[in-house]
Simulated assay, not measured.
Amino acid sequence: MKFLFVISLFLTSLTLASAAPSKPAAGLHQWSKRQTNTVSKPDGRLFNINGTTQYFAGTNAWWLSYLTSDQDVDTVMSEIAATQLKVVRVWAFGSVNSIPQAGTVYFQILNSTGSYLNTGADGLARLDAVVASAETHGIQLVLPFTNNWSDLGGIPSYNAAFGDNATSWYTSAPSQAAYRSYIEAIVNRYKNSSAIFAWELCNEPRCQGCATSVITNWAANTSSYIKSLDGAHMVTLGDEGWFAPADGIGDGSYAYGGDVGVDFTANLKIDTLDYGTFHLYPDSWGYNYTWGSTWIEEHDQVGSQIGKPVVLEEYGTPFPHNHTGTEAPWQTTVVNATQVAYDSFWQFATINLTSGSQYDVNSIWYNDTEYTVLARQHAADMLAKKVA
């Protein structure tokens, strides 16, 4: 989701000392020498977590790694666990081109000389807190390494450092070297944690006007590199699920035309990608809401043909729409008409924080009426769904 910050990054309430950046190779975290037997893996069209294969529901909470209070992180994780949501997608990126003002959380500095980590209290210590809390509460994490959009740096911050653009980034030697340096640091930091569900290449990668082979080749090469660092955990792309004309699906309109350089079918066939992702925002894409169920079924059919799990990784409808009225039918399609392994609504929100608030127009607020239907009941329905 190309989200807008409707508030400042809720970081102004605390002032943290900015740590000097270090090269990614510097220092090993507490997880680096620990081994875990809890590894999530594909099991046919579904996933097996800690020995159990089942359908389940999840959510997105990108902002968890930007909360400045460990207690707030634990509050969120406990609320998610109480809802029976199994997987949470949290941003594992945050790049800047120069050291920001004190109190700003960031993980990486990018400049013409390369990629440097901020491992301090206002850096990866925040992501450490998320991983530790997820372990405590039995939550699995999907961790994307960068963002197509400029929010929290993303690909544009690489372009600013190395002189690339939105399309050249995927084949730029300096950008990809810095990106892989960051991947190496994050994977090696957390690969022995029991909380890792999957590594994700990018949030919503696009290459506007490019041949779809550009992203397919990049995804194949990058996922293979990640597997060389960590062969135990799953890897996924993080794309929106666009189809290309070669797929023979749809009417050739925006979601099916290949204009953004993504071919869901070709990407799902990559050996080193363990499952496919797709997103659903009809309001932003020019489709009606009932089309959403068609979109879900089309991706399920491709997953069935290829024999891999597919995940409805993000979906939402903006205010003033009735979230339950628009999104519950999609959830019904997931439960009753597909083998979609899990789905994650965008996004979880709660008022029970001390270090600020987070929300956007798609948020589903903990324990309100919509949450009861779209989170609690849906999570229960997915867990109760029979595994064939």
Score class of each variant (00 low, 15 high):
residue 166 A to G: 02
residue 87 V to K: 04
residue 80 I to S: 08
residue 340 V to P: 00
residue 119 T to E: 15
residue 363 S to R: 09
residue 50 N to E: 13
residue 255 A to R: 15
residue 27 G to M: 10
residue 123 G to R: 02
residue 19 A to T: 06
residue 134 A to N: 13
residue 356 G to C: 07
residue 269 K to L: 03
residue 39 V to L: 06
residue 378 H to C: 01
residue 267 N to H: 06
residue 378 H to A: 01
residue 10 F to V: 02
residue 338 T to D: 08
residue 287 Y to K: 13
residue 377 Q to T: 14
residue 364 I to R: 10
residue 312 L to T: 00
residue 292 G to N: 06
residue 3 F to M: 13
residue 100 P to W: 05
residue 54 Q to L: 04
residue 105 V to I: 15
residue 169 W to A: 09
residue 318 P to M: 13
residue 119 T to C: 09
residue 148 N to K: 10
residue 73 V to A: 01
residue 289 Y to V: 03
residue 179 Y to N: 08
residue 219 A to S: 14
residue 75 T to L: 00
residue 306 I to A: 06
residue 79 E to C: 01
residue 152 L to P: 10
residue 57 A to S: 12
residue 368 D to Q: 09
residue 287 Y to T: 07
residue 17 A to C: 03
residue 101 Q to H: 09
residue 349 A to K: 14
residue 166 A to M: 04
residue 55 Y to A: 06
residue 15 T to R: 13
residue 133 S to I: 09
residue 314 E to P: 00
residue 188 N to I: 01
residue 303 G to V: 07
residue 278 F to I: 03
residue 78 S to T: 12
residue 104 T to R: 13
residue 367 N to Q: 15
residue 87 V to L: 05
residue 13 S to I: 09
residue 350 T to L: 05
residue 137 H to I: 00
residue 249 I to P: 11
residue 290 T to S: 14
residue 225 Y to S: 04
residue 320 P to I: 04
